[in-house]
Amino acid sequence: MNHAVERYLAPTSLTQALAVLAESGGATVLAGGTDLMPQSRAGRVKFARTLLNIRRVPGMDMVEVADGKLLLGALVTISTLVDHPLVRDHAPLLSQAADHFASDQIRNAATLGGNLCNASPAGDTLTPLMALDAEIELVGLDGTGVLQSRWLPLDGFFTGPGRTQRKPNELLRGVRLPVAPDDQKVAFYKAGVRPALDISTISIAFAARRRDRAILHDVRLALGAVAPTPIRARRTEALLEGKALTAELVRVAAASAASEATPIDDVRASGWYRKELVLNMTQRILEDVGNN
C-alpha cells in the first residue's frame, strides 16, 4: 500500500498513543482515514514510518454537556454530529453543517478531530465551529512523560492549508463550545457543483443572538474556502453587531463579507466566482435571518 510505512500501531490508551507521537520521526495519525488515504494516494501527504491508529483510544468519542458547554471528543464521527440529540439541541449549526458533509459511508468513518486537523479551508465542520466560538484541546507528553493539555480557540488554530498549531507530538483530544442560547439564530450555506457529496466551493456559517426581531448580538460570520484557512469575517461582524437588520445594512454587510474573502482560483472555482457567492449568499442568509 505505502512503502514508507514500516510500523502500524493501534494503542489502547491515550498515554501510549502520545508516547508513540513523542518518538523521533513521529507518526502519521489515522482516525477515520477518509482524507488521509486519498491524500496519500494523490501524493499530497507523505506517510511517516509509523502509522498510528488512534481509534482504539478510549473516551475520545464522547458527547457530553457540562457547565454550559458541549464537549465533543476528537473521534466523534460526522454521523454522530448529524444525529446525536445533544449536538442537535446544543449546536444545531454544527449538526446542520455536518449534514452537508460527504456521503453516509464517509460520515460513518470520518471524525471531527480528523476534519479539524486536516485543516482544509473547505472543511465542513470548521466554519460552524468557528462561528460557535469553539475551543480545542491539544494534549501531549512533556519530557518526563507527564500528560500536558492546552486549550486554544479554534479561530487561530489553523495556520494555513493543511497546517495547524498542533505540534507533532500532540493529539487533538476534543472540542468544547458554549451550548446554544435560546435566542441564537444560525445559518449554514455550502456551495458545490452538486447538492451532495461535494467539497465546498465556499461555505458560510452564521450565528448571532437576536430576540424578537430586535438587534443582533454576538454576531459570528465564518467563511470557508475563500482564504488559506477558514476565516472569521470580523469587519462584517462588527458592522452587524448591535444593529437591527435593514435592507441597506444587509447589502453593506454582504459587500463587506465579500471584501474580506481572498479566494484563489482552483479546480473547483475561480476566485471571482467565490467572491460573488459570498456576496450573494451572505445577503440571502441575512435576509432570511431578518425575515424570521
Binding site: R194, A196, I199, V267
Partner: peptide, 27 residues
C-alpha cells in the same frame, strides 16, 4: 451539468471522483 474532465496544459486536474463529479442520487 456536472461532469468536466479538466485538461489544462495537457494535464488532467481532477483524476478522481472527488473532483470529477458524476450525478449522484439526489439529483
Amino acid at each position: 451539468l456536472t461532469e468536466d474532465l479538466q485538461v489544462e496544459g495537457g494535464k488532467i486536474r481532477n483524476p478522481n471522483f472527488r473532483d470529477y463529479k458524476l450525478v449522484t442520487a439526489p439529483e
